[in-house]
Amino acid sequence: MTLILPYAREDAGQPPSLHPPYVSTVPRSPRQPLVRIPQTLTELTGPAGCWDNLMGESLFDLTDQHLARPLGQRIVVAGRVLDEQGRPVRGTVMEIWQANAAGRYIHKKDQWDAPHDPNFTGAGRVITDDEGRYRFVTVRPGAYPWGNHHNAWRPSHIHLSLLGPAFATRLVTQMYFPDDPLIEIDPIANAVPSPYRQRLVSRFDIETTQPDWALGYLFDVVLRGRGATPLDPEYGEDDHHD
């Protein structure tokens, strides 16, 4: 069998599982230490390239799923999916979901008193091209209150879900907007240590902005990359487990 290089471990920018200011992490995060294991064929493989058999076709325009256009600021979000060596991750699926421009999700359990938009569902998916590029069209989601603490508000954000090439590269994250003062007081964004949380903040870009049509934001997603050391015949890249 072909030798497969293991993927890099977590870098310093990943949040801890327990971040008490985000109250729901307290009963839902493990207290026992994670058991470090070598990456085997199980972790080094994944359903790469068969997203269309699983989830269906690309749905890149979230403003074009109903009879009329949704309310709100139309935006284009574009960027690349890369590995840690800066190489494109081709043909991978990125699933997207978000609140509408008023900050309301179409989800039945979102009972906040902001209006639904009959022309906006807020779900889509895109596939990266040969250069790892993706692009989707949506409206800027609104901020919304949540029950974490008194007067808590989530910053505007778009949820992103990526499979990548392997079980080891799976990523679910959230993308934020550059002009949003709520980011610095949001317990979820702030679970990511500084300065790495700025990786989650998109950049307004005039080149991506389309004249007379939509504002443009750039956001690259970097998945764990193949490490430089091949699998040790005994226990993966090293025998250190803590």
Partner: peptide, 27 residues
């Protein structure tokens, strides 16, 4: 300092899936 800053290049941090993923992820 943002996503496009070369000095910050590295793994995109994980964030919670939240409570409202049902209309997007589990088909």
């Amino acid at each position: 300092l943002d996503n496009q800053d070369p000095g910050l290049f590295g793994q995109t941090p994980s964030q919670t899936v939240g409570p409202f993923f049902h209309y997007s992820l589990p088909w």
